[in-house]
Design a protein around this nucleic acid. Structure first.
Lengths: 117, 117
DNA sequence: CAAATTCATCGTAACAAGCCGATGAACCGG
DNA sequence: CCGGTTCATCGGCTTGTTACGATGAATTTG
């Protein structure tokens, strides 16, 4: 018996805003306080490596590395690896775009932008 | 042996932006595509009950009710219950505020707002 | 009063997330 | 070539999330 899951159905929107899945992925990457701190740290520190972040957090290096991986998979962070070091930086283009789209979405849920009011 | 967890340490920011936890909670509420669809549906349909939402989603009523609970706990949605019915509406004030704060946060991670560039 | 409607909550199951320590790869300096 | 540094990944553990059906509460209608 197959279970239903998030990916098993369309969102139901036919208005061109059928991107709940993509939005949710971005929010999921930002849904952890450690990752928010990491993102902020990467933004504020040029030439930022995993160790630099681990040094300011009470977490194991492997844990920080995992969080970075999540941010990278969400494309919020980019990495350039020159062993034994990896240099992280934020994807500013995407961050700006997410900022705009999030604002648009949230405000579209408010009455002055509602369709049926 | 106590485990470390997200709540066990401060974010390390001393610049007044030590709100990674609160931000993460909001993003967590939005980190599920079903909840995005529900939020949008509530926004676009006045006098919206749980059944109205369940009717347009391939999910059980109990599941929709749980998602609504998450949105309510995050204060994104408000409810007025007059049994046997509950009427949901979005918290527009908070949505606008989240929109602004998210935009501010994300843009503060971009270079033109960085401190050390 | 009985039946129907609407919803919240409970118990449960499957899976994902988050954390750790250990390990190994890739390089650098002695 | 050996030890140190940095990082990614693995296995394992604990906890959280998402889903379901079942149940019961509150009301409205027959």
């Amino acid at each position: 018996m197959p279970r239903r899951c998030n990916q098993d159905f369309a969102t139901g929107f036919t208005d061109g805003f059928d991107r709940a899945g993509e939005m949710a992925e971005v929010f999921a990457a930002l849904s952890n306080p450690v990752r928010i701190v990491i993102l902020r740290h990467v933004a504020n520190h040029a030439d930022c490596g995993c160790k630099d972040i681990t040094d300011v957090l009470p977490l194991a290096q492997s844990t920080v590395s995992q969080h970075l991986k999540v941010l990278i998979e969400a494309k919020l962070v980019e990495v350039e690896t020159v062993p034994p070091r990896s240099c992280y930086r934020v994807n500013e283009k995407l961050l700006r775009s997410i900022s705009d789209e999030t604002a648009h979405f949230l405000k579209s849920c408010c009455s002055d932008m509602r369709v049926d009011v």
